[in-house]
Design a binder for these strands. Sequence first.
DNA 1: TAGATTGTTAATCGATTAACAATC
DNA 2: TAGATTGTTAATCGATTAACAATC
Lengths: 219, 219
Amino acid sequence: MSNEIPRATVERLPRYLKCLEQLIQHKRTISSTELAHLANLSPAQLRKDLSQLGSYGIRGVGYDVEQLQGEIRRELGLTRDWPVIVVGVGNLGSALAAYGGFGNRGFEIAGLYDVDPDRIGDNIQGIEIRSLDRVGRDVAARRVAIGIITTPAVAAQSTADVLVAAGISSILNFAPAVISVPSHVELRQVDLSTELQILAFYLQSRSGESAPRPRDDEP
Amino acid sequence: MSNEIPRATVERLPRYLKCLEQLIQHKRTISSTELAHLANLSPAQLRKDLSQLGSYGIRGVGYDVEQLQGEIRRELGLTRDWPVIVVGVGNLGSALAAYGGFGNRGFEIAGLYDVDPDRIGDNIQGIEIRSLDRVGRDVAARRVAIGIITTPAVAAQSTADVLVAAGISSILNFAPAVISVPSHVELRQVDLSTELQILAFYLQSRSGESAPRPRDDEP
DNA sequence: TAGATTGTTAATCGATTAACAATC
DNA sequence: TAGATTGTTAATCGATTAACAATC
């Protein structure tokens, strides 16, 4: 009954949004062909995706850039600001905290946490680093739904457990470890070495070495 | 003729590898059920994936952990070390450069580049930051195939162009911009705000607000 | 041999593509 | 009206799942 948007489409909406943001200064309307070209996708796929949101294109003309941006933002839930916490303020966590792109994109850092006593009390961009012990109270008080894990790999699972216990329902894991969460928690994993390994696969396969030599286990 | 491994399978191989690495101390063999559980996937999918690599399981027993790790590493092209360069040594680029996980995972930072004269000559983890002008010569000399972009969004496309011109054939883009590369270049994009937006979508849709209110454009 | 677990097949499901009628 | 471009349909393609024969 409700308009179910396919997962693959949801995962492309941010990309369309990014293209539209770069575009909004320059054009009032854009055709599926042009926008698809910017997004490195086919026009058919773009139209299919956008038609899932309702029908905001104008036949013979194209899409209104500003309106479409608004529709996608609404669909993604970016008309409000989501508070986000970051656990693990090492190099990567600090880099994310310092990254400006939160505020103007619908997100806001509501807290930074670490377990290292030396770091607790420091602050990054005006946000104090607090003990992970406090995360339960803070999440409840500020109604935080999204947690980002930037701890070392060994601490990732226990951190996830703490976040879930605190009531977090969406986790973005940057630690290079596969973690498990209850099924009501939405989990996304981003990992540098995973991405590099995928690139390495295609490099190797392109450079010829395609057939992995078969093993002879028996003499 | 050559054993084409489906893209979806390739993208899961790093995950299996990560699980096996955590496991290798503890077990000599593992069943598809157990390993799938660790990887948050179904046993059927795991067996299907692994069977694409050849058949390394033992019926009635399971998979030899060490052997399977070796097979996946070979398949992904991790039996050699791939030199990698990083362009843009801001917070994120510095964090990646400082990240220990390169060396022991089949990758090695062969160069750091920036355009900021103040940063050129500095070094991170013993690697000197050089002018982007030099990237062409360096890539050729060191046979670098993989480039990581950690510049600001506005510089991402021009950086990609420079890398492609230098002969790089695989790019990992962390800048929050959609970029285009020639079809012979393999491109992967990783973006914090994209991931957060996808999480926001599911948060919003779970919390009820499912039907985007229809627009009345006509009075 | 009996029990366990793989590798593979066939069925299902979902996503992409191509084409074109609808319509601005 | 003629030209352009969407939204949608049907066809294709690829990925996942379930089930079980093969086999350790």
